[in-house]
């Protein structure tokens, strides 16, 4: 094999560590908590049931303040859920995504949660296209920047 000199490689430390002991030597009293340690909590477990069907979107506007969705909030959307009466859903209306409450009775409509906005009605002729069901709202309460 030919070796060619590539230039000096500067290693952050030039010392070579030699292991003196193969095992740590326990000294002192073992921690009584050792047998009780569990994995720390992961927010994903709480907010996401179907990872491959979950998308995040950002809300803009004040029409859903009544259910606690404010402008700039991040919404967790699960596409795998079948939308039912009373669900908060992402719908496609006039070429835009919108977040509203789904009402299937007495008539099909999308309901805002702000008195300033009228419900969006769906007659027998127009179809309602849904993107997914909102399961969680992520609302930061700390002012940033």
């Amino acid at each position: 094999m030919q070796l060619s000199f590539l230039g000096r490689y500067r290693c952050p430390t030039t010392s070579i560590a030699l292991p003196l002991f193969m095992n740590a030597v326990p000294a002192g009293f073992p921690s009584p908590a050792q047998d009780y340690i569990e994995r720390t909590l992961d927010l994903n477990d709480l907010c996401i049931q179907h990872p491959s069907a979950t998308y995040f979107v950002r809300a803009e506007g004040d029409s859903m303040q009544g259910v606690g969705i404010f402008s700039r909030d991040v919404l967790v959307v699960d596409r795998s859920l079948k939308a039912a009466h009373g669900d908060i859903v992402i719908a496609c209306v006039d070429g835009e995504f919108t977040v509203k409450e789904l009402r299937t009775r007495p008539t099909l409509q999308l309901l805002a949660h702000n008195p300033a906005y009228a419900p969006i009605q769906f007659g027998p002729d127009n179809t309602l296209e849904l993107f997914g069901v909102v399961t969680t709202v992520i609302h930061s309460v700390r002012q940033r920047g």
Binding site: Y55, G61, S63, M64, I69, F70, V74, T98, V99
Partner: peptide, 14 residues
């Protein structure tokens, strides 16, 4: 990058 960047999430009208 709708699904991989926090600053580029799809926008929904509320």
């Amino acid at each position: 990058a709708y699904t991989t960047h926090w600053d580029q999430l799809p926008i929904v009208k509320a």
